[in-house]
Design a protein around this nucleic acid. Sequence first.
RNA 1: GGUCGGAUGGCCGAGAGGCGAGGCUCGGGACUGCAAAUCCCGCUACACGGGUUCAAAUCCCGUUCCGACCUCCA
Length: 457
Amino acid sequence: MSALNLYDTKTRSIAPFKSLKPKQVGIYLCGATVQAPPHIGHIRSGVNFDILRRWLIATGYEVTFVRNVTDIDDKILHKAVHEEIPWWAVAMKYERAFTDAYNALNVLPPTYEPRATGHITQMINLMQILIDNGSAYAPGNGDVYLEVRKLKEYLTLSNQKLDDLQTAEDADLTYKKDPRDFALWKAAKAGDPSWPTPWGDGRPGWHLECSAMAHAYLGEAFDIHGGGLDLIFPHHENEIAQSQAAGYKFANTWMHNAWVTTSGEKMSKSLGNSLQVQEILKKVRGIELRWYLGSAHYRSMLEFSFDALAESATAFRRVEAFLARAKSVLGAEPQPVIAAEFAAAMNDDLAVPQALAFIAESMRIGNTSADDKKVIAKTAGEVRGALSILGCDPFDPVFAASKSNDAAMDGLIKLALEQREAARLRKDFAAADAIRDQIASLGVIVEDTPNGPRWSY
RNA sequence: GGUCGGAUGGCCGAGAGGCGAGGCUCGGGACUGCAAAUCCCGCUACACGGGUUCAAAUCCCGUUCCGACCUCCA
């Protein structure tokens, strides 16, 4: 089997992936800042990295997957005031919404999911190191800044020059030595939550939590750090700056997923609620939304439209029907296997589109096999194996749970099919088709074969 | 101003010097019940202008258009 190659944002190239420790991988994924319900862009990131994780596991790695929750930031505090509930209630509410969305899309729960506010101690420790070695300074007002000009390397991920950065026009240099210095810690304002530190009461800046938590759970050096494209600068640059200034090697490989776009533009929260995961799930099932979000290459923009979503769901149902048919022919669920072609696609920087072409080819072979059990077992096994990596295995209990398997259900379906057969015998095809369409709308697929009707769901 | 990424057929979406990924839609056919499912065939592409090459969607030069980031966005 070919070896995994991944694109590294830092080198802007694809290179063989080599874990720091044999057969073990540590991944830190920037998760949600829980300030609003998740939209499909947020969840695409979750799906993309879940596919990576599943692939690493399938190829024999033990994966420690850390995805943080940033549960304090300006917007959360604003929302708390606006909604007249405590900031922590705002954070928890949206954290739950994210968890629900991840679950609905079969995103595996992280090995650990640390919250920023649970790691103030680690942040203070990190700041102490940075102040002690002269990388950071506390001007006395309660803020703590990282002095970016002192860094040996800065902006290597986004390939920018410090002097080329546009600085904020309203940069306040009362306390900052340089407008580009960024806040590790923010002094407490009246009414805002705060934690005591040696430099005064305050709360974390945006970037500090990820450095502190990645270090806490993955150590000074780890394999992969991921997130959305827009985090490259400033968030990830600043994580690198803080961590390396503290003497940590930090992440080996940087991976960034592209956006879901609408009309060519990055989705913005001003678009309203229609692209929230919860809303989309009123139109398609979680497994269909996952198939759609995972179907484009993770580094390509995914141009969202409801038509494209519906089309993708149609395509997925065909795959699902193929597997259901296979189960019916085999008398058991096909056993998932990883085909060499699929592995080759995944090893090529997670080339899901190629993997989908392979799935289509396997289905074609299976569908032309005239129910040859050997061929069906092979092709359906390969298709199921591929789907399991994509997180879209219809037999996965996560998705199958909603289906009833009890005797009453079987009996009712048989009754309906008997009625339909009776209608067919008297050439009342309108009635027969009506029955088929009705039970199809309940998720039961009926197909006529030379040996009589076959149903699956 | 700096950095980065795009433009592919009716639609989605790969590829990155030669043999047209794949899916959805559409048209024709097989099978069937003038059905469903399935299969087969077909249709329409590489933003524009030059260049390199036996050969360019792919490389080079130029142009146009679009998007993203530039200090609390996945």
